[in-house]
Amino acid sequence: MSDESFEPKIVAFLCNWCTYTGADLAGTSRIQYPPNVRIIRLMCSGSVDPTYVLKALLDGADGVLIGGCHPGDCHYQSGNYKARRRIIALKEIVKQAGLDEERVWLRWVSASEGQRFADVVTQMVGALKEKGPNPLRQEWAV
């Protein structure tokens, strides 16, 4: 996109057991990734309320990442399956609201996948740079 200096803002909702721990492992392994992501720890991807994602987008986040355990690995048995269904529905709502549903990413990253966590963030930052800022952020900027 046009603006070279654009640094996307990503809010990430990560489950405590897999993706949050995977992000910790990226840290202990000193794997570098762009600083654009800010993490909110939740217990399970199945407890990500769609309203959290919508609020983040409406508040101007350029992207929202939801991270959970791989299918079958949820610490609470099935939270990630619930998350998967919910996020599909949510993306529909995001689209209907005239927003870009591809600003919402759902990814499975296990506790042992520090490198994968870093890769996901790096890819997401790249994709969002392509897209440019969340239009809501621009409109609301004063």
Partner: peptide, 21 residues
């Protein structure tokens, strides 16, 4: 404490302590 019920509740009557909306 997974919070699945809290997200599911249509009346928003349930919340997970320490992770409330």
């Amino acid at each position: 404490g997974c919070g699945a019920c809290a997200v599911t509740c249509p009346s928003k009557a349930i919340c997970l302590q320490q992770f409330t909306p």
